[in-house]
Design a protein around this nucleic acid. Structure first.
Length: 266
DNA sequence: ATGGTTGCGTGGCAA
């Protein structure tokens, strides 16, 4: 089973790119972020015409996550538990950043598509929200661990885990994606028993999943590795491969992110 | 050099 995470940066603007990608690369499961669309306006035909089921958790203008899969998408859950002031206007749970579901193909997986808050500028209220969100995610990740299922949490983490995951770490020291507290919160999830799938396969530097639109960052390979799959031990047992697919980033009118893949089982 | 790019949605924000 092959699973890809892809921040599309606007599903309406990226409909043709995503349709071509589903046809050519054919993931069994696609975990998508930054739909920037309400559920009703998502171009569902992009997925249905390619033979995918689709479950979305959208929001007007910003955020938005989805799971697309060739097999049925079961036991869907939207939103992360534990939002402060849940139900009130402006509460933490207003932002559509988390969707999880079970998919049973040649292996059975609990998959989560997540869009972790960017957090800039840091310090500040947006950074405080990011760190609170990461703690809520840790608590949910711990619950999922206790199920002893194969769990895949894939998405745009907005976290640069190590210095080798950024082209120019010296200019990122104070950035919300790279600050010590951010990396510590990421490690805290790993240390409970989750594995960064890409780093189980590729120890070296220079592998990125995002390049800024500005200053020719992609052509200079000045990027960030911020899109990840964290695997529960049961999922890590099944890991057969992990890689970054750079071709979609080189197309015309691309997302600023590119798909990151894992293969589980044979 | 306080620039540069993109999406959403038609303001200016978020990234």
């Amino acid at each position: 089973m092959r699973i890809a995470t892809f921040n599309v940066n606007g599903i309406k603007a990226r409909a043709q790119i995503v349709a071509d990608w589903l046809r050519d690369s054919a993931p069994d499961i696609a975990l998508l972020q930054e739909l920037k669309s309400v559920d009703e306006a998502v171009p569902r035909e992009v997925f249905e015409d390619a033979g995918y089921n689709l479950q979305t958790h959208g929001q007007k203008g910003f955020n938005g996550v989805a799971i697309a899969a060739k097999h049925p998408i079961e036991d869907v859950r939207r939103g992360l538990p534990g939002a402060e002031g849940a139900g009130r206007e402006g509460a933490d749970d207003e932002e559509a950043r988390w969707i999880e579901a079970t998919v049973v193909g040649d292996v059975a997986v609990r998959v989560c598509a997540l869009y972790l808050p960017n957090g800039n500028p840091a310090p500040g209220p947006k950074y405080d929200y990011k760190l609170r969100w990461m703690e809520r995610m840790r608590l949910r990740a711990d619950e999922l661990l206790s199920t002893e299922e194969a769990v895949v949490m894939g998405g745009d983490y907005n976290v640069i885990p190590q210095r080798i995951d950024v082209a120019r770490p010296e200019v990122m020291e104070d950035d919300a994606l790279f600050r010590p507290e951010t990396r510590e919160a990421f490690r805290r999830i790993e240390n409970m028993g989750y594995f960064d799938a890409f780093r189980l396969r590729e120890p070296g530097p220079g592998h990125y999943s995002y390049w800024d639109y500005q200053r020719g960052a992609f052509d200079r390979n000045e990027g960030l590795r911020i899109d990840h799959h964290l695997l529960s031990p049961q999922a890590a047992d099944l890991l057969a491969g992990a890689w970054i697919e750079t071709a979609p980033r080189a197309k015309a009118k691309p997302s600023d992110h590119t798909p990151v893949w894992i293969e589980l089982g044979a």
